[in-house]
Design a protein around this nucleic acid. Structure first.
Lengths: 189, 189
DNA sequence: GAGATATCGGGACAAATGTCCTTTAGGATC
DNA sequence: GATCCTAAAGGACATTTGTCCCGATATCTC
């Protein structure tokens, strides 16, 4: 649910010690936007601290949350590779620090640093696997089971993430989420 | 919907001319199973000819179709990278020929052949992007709009793919799919 | 030809989910 | 204090989707 990749974070921190001019670090206060949807991206980002949400707004105004990015998660790498416009926006859910790598430097690193290459390859592969399992579950189960799965993965869910975001992550309305939460509570009595 | 990657297919065909011992080619008749779910995979596959379906069976017995693989699509690469069990099964929807690359040769190619590395990186990145857009749309629109989107992407849809598979791809029941198909037909009169 | 089996189509009803609307509460701003 | 946001909670109702049927049709097998 909140994805992390501490091995990648450690590695990029190490690279940065030798390469300070290429990799910069920025702070985004809670609620601010890090990446816009449908823009050309010049950078690849890696979360150093905090949690960001990555989401897509459809033409009907509804949002769908792709992932919550925690420490070490990379974003912008898909766009750097395929040279298309960003298909998601990213905003800081808490105060968030990110490493920012210019696209050309990122591609050069991929090409010249085999360890980095493998880290990124694994990160992207992880996204495929995660999405595959998540969406299969979401499509084949009722909201209640999907919520329970999230709570199991991440018990502090309701304390940390606004309910509207949880609903948007599950692809349901806030009303429906509230309903299953209160009803599954009742059943215990 | 039916994904293809002819550039990768051409490239792998070229590699195979110099490397015939590593990359073999097999034929799978319609309906046969190429990969099992929850198994350790020893190979990475690239579709040479035909269409295969990649799907996941949940513990409640329901299937969810992840992708239809057409020419040049690669599968098994996620498992080769992360060394986990397969999370999907793959069966031949039509008679299907595949190139089969032993896992160790695949990883060696990734490491030693920068062009191949980039092809695979782009292929996996493409899967992330495709899934992100697809699932956002599916979660935020009604079945009818989702079917229309598929028909627009792939007009011969209903002639080529069994309805049950289309329903499983959309994560809905066959009954619901039939309903929206017959009702959206009626509205035109 | 009789008996399996698979795909397709759809009726009737049940259950899940969405839409719309009202209320409450707290924080921010002027 | 008045006003404006935003998040949360939930009632009432409409719509969508699923479940459980039954029947038709085609193919394959013995």
């Amino acid at each position: 649910m909140i994805r992390t990749n501490t091995a990648l974070l450690d590695y990029i921190s190490g690279i940065r010690r030798d390469n300070r001019e290429a990799i910069s670090c920025y702070n985004f206060p809670e609620g601010t936007r890090i990446v816009e949807q449908q823009k050309r991206l010049s950078f690849v980002y890696i979360v150093k601290k905090g949690v960001a949400k990555c989401f897509l707004t459809e033409e009907n105004g509804k949002d769908f949350i792709q992932e919550f990015f925690g420490e070490g998660e990379v974003f912008g790498e898909i766009e750097a590779l395929n040279d298309k416009l960003s298909f998601c926006a990213v905003t800081a859910l808490t105060d968030t620090e990110v490493y920012q790598i210019p696209r050309t430097d990122f591609l050069k690193l991929l090409d010249e640093d085999k360890v980095f290459n493998r880290f990124i390859m694994n990160a992207i592969a992880g996204k495929v696997r995660y999405k595959a399992l998540r969406h299969a579950h979401n499509q084949l189960h009722a909201i209640e089971e999907n919520v329970q799965r999230l709570q199991k993965q991440f018990p502090r869910l309701l304390e940390v993430i606004p309910k509207k975001d949880i609903a948007n992550y599950l692809g349901v309305t806030l009303r429906s989420l509230n309903r299953v939460l209160s009803e599954s509570g009742k059943e215990k009595f």
